[in-house]
Design a protein around this nucleic acid. Sequence first.
DNA 1: ATATTTGCAAAGCCTTTGCAGGGGA
DNA 2: TCCCCTGCAAAGGCTTTGCAAATAT
Lengths: 145, 145
Amino acid sequence: MTSRKKRRSCLQSLKPEEIEVMLRKAGLQPTAQRIAICRYVFCEADHPTAEDVKRWADKHLPKISLATVYNTLSALAKAGLLLELKLSHSDCVVYDVNTERHFHFLDEKTGKLFDVGEEELGLELKLKGGLKARAIEVLIRGTSK
Amino acid sequence: MTSRKKRRSCLQSLKPEEIEVMLRKAGLQPTAQRIAICRYVFCEADHPTAEDVKRWADKHLPKISLATVYNTLSALAKAGLLLELKLSHSDCVVYDVNTERHFHFLDEKTGKLFDVGEEELGLELKLKGGLKARAIEVLIRGTSK
DNA sequence: ATATTTGCAAAGCCTTTGCAGGGGA
DNA sequence: TCCCCTGCAAAGGCTTTGCAAATAT
């Protein structure tokens, strides 16, 4: 098993109560919709979009509106529980449960997105003209075998 | 004068006839609208959006439609004369006359975008799991003094 | 009781598309 | 002539917003 897979699986067993605690800590009311969305996003999904979440929710919840999905994801992101990624290959935001500093790899054949750990990409900044870096976003395009 | 400025200024004096030649070489009919858009994009603008181009065109041309602006910019990009950038800080595409391999720097205070030459950022790929890179997109966020 | 959150529909933003008229090759 | 280009308006995809009803503390 690669380190890529390990990183994901560390969150796969969150219980509803743990999600409640997490939401409260983040200052968010643990409503049924939010708990459900978290279960999916943190335990099952891989870089889901709002549409992915909505599709899943329609199967697993009695009712939820698309606006609530957007609001919830955006609230989770604002609370620092998720990263909101706007990548160049797609028009829609994808959410990432990995909030550590990392980069992304897009398999251009399949459209699949992988997290790339800091240790997989060495960066050496030699910026001219007084530019001061604060954060770096990297999308590597290629193929995964 | 920094190298950043030099790179831009090498295109600042294109004459209409030169633009015509460039368009023909690219397989595009040199219509009045296209020539005008090229004058702006190649000689005056700095990472313009379609809206920027439209605004400029409305001041300098008798009439042009937004669709034509989009079509023209997209045709120029398809022809390899421009780069179409979708960056995470903005919902709209920005166009870049610099078609060499390079990266971008966003001044988060001003919103201004700078090109960052390859020599200003060392990259060392150590991808695991059989990922093969083909291209790398980098957006550095920070401040310019 | 009070402040949040939800659902719905409508609107927003950026971009693309369909089609008729116009112009260059 | 024929094909490409233009302009206009409409539609498209994704996301946000306004507001009343429902829910949480």
